[in-house]
Amino acid sequence: MADLHIEEFYKDVAIALVQLYGAFPRRVNLFVEDIAGPDEPDEFGLHSKRHMACFGALLWLEEEGLLRYVDTIRQEALDQAVLSQTAFVRLSAPAPSALARALGGQRDVEADALPSSVQEDLSTYIHLIRTALRSGHSGRISQVIQATFFADTSE
């Protein structure tokens, strides 16, 4: 089992990518509270560790070239965020069918009965991320995010 903060990182990344993909190519404000949930700063105005971890995950996505933004809105949000070309292409790409099966996707027989355009949409990384988020299963979310961005794609 992964450390809790790593599972939260994968979930934060997944939610942020789904939000940005859904708005693409528009620039949107990406609010930490929409991803990690409400946060009440302490008596000194400092955010919780959870809030700051989510904010850090968003900044990390930019540092790794997966999104761009104009500015930060304090430690509350990224202003005018948009997916990078690299992230958009990767999220739109078909995932290996073995990954879809491992994540509990549709059985091959059911998928074969669908029109090819629908089959293509259901085979993308973004679809697998959305499905994993809907499941609420942290292991599936972690697995699909790892496969989407961290697996060796040179094969």
Rank of each mutant, 00 (worst) to 15 (best):
28 V>H: 02
56 G>V: 11
42 D>Q: 06
63 E>K: 12
29 N>S: 15
35 I>C: 12
48 S>G: 14
55 F>A: 12
31 F>P: 02
27 R>N: 09
45 G>W: 00
65 G>A: 15
50 R>P: 03
51 H>N: 02
42 D>N: 15
52 M>P: 06
42 D>L: 03
40 E>V: 15
54 C>M: 09
44 F>L: 07
45 G>E: 01
48 S>H: 10
52 M>Y: 03
28 V>I: 15
54 C>W: 01
51 H>R: 09
57 A>T: 12
31 F>A: 07
65 G>D: 11
52 M>I: 02
48 S>Q: 02
42 D>P: 11
45 G>T: 01
30 L>T: 06
45 G>D: 00
38 P>Q: 13
63 E>H: 13
56 G>Q: 12
45 G>Q: 02
32 V>D: 01
41 P>Y: 10
40 E>Y: 00
36 A>I: 00
45 G>H: 01
45 G>I: 01
36 A>Q: 06
57 A>C: 11
41 P>L: 08
38 P>Y: 13
36 A>L: 03
59 L>A: 07
33 E>K: 13
36 A>C: 15
34 D>H: 15
35 I>S: 07
36 A>T: 05
27 R>M: 03
34 D>K: 15
55 F>V: 11
46 L>C: 11
32 V>Y: 10
60 W>P: 04
41 P>G: 06
52 M>C: 13
61 L>T: 06
43 E>Q: 06
28 V>F: 00
47 H>F: 13
43 E>D: 08
32 V>K: 10
49 K>A: 15
44 F>I: 00
57 A>Y: 01
37 G>M: 11
42 D>W: 09
55 F>G: 10
49 K>P: 09
45 G>K: 03
31 F>G: 00
39 D>C: 10
61 L>Y: 05
65 G>C: 14
45 G>S: 02
41 P>A: 11
39 D>K: 01
59 L>I: 03
37 G>V: 10
33 E>T: 14
53 A>G: 14
35 I>A: 12
54 C>Y: 02
30 L>C: 12
51 H>S: 01
35 I>T: 05
46 L>P: 02
32 V>G: 03
32 V>R: 11
41 P>E: 08
32 V>T: 07
55 F>D: 08
48 S>W: 04
28 V>R: 13
39 D>W: 00
30 L>A: 07
64 E>Y: 12
64 E>C: 12
56 G>F: 11
41 P>F: 11
62 E>W: 05
61 L>S: 03
57 A>P: 08
48 S>F: 05
50 R>G: 08
52 M>K: 09
51 H>M: 05
29 N>P: 04
29 N>A: 14
35 I>V: 10
48 S>C: 08
63 E>F: 05
33 E>I: 14
33 E>C: 10
46 L>F: 09
39 D>L: 00
40 E>R: 08
44 F>R: 14
42 D>G: 07
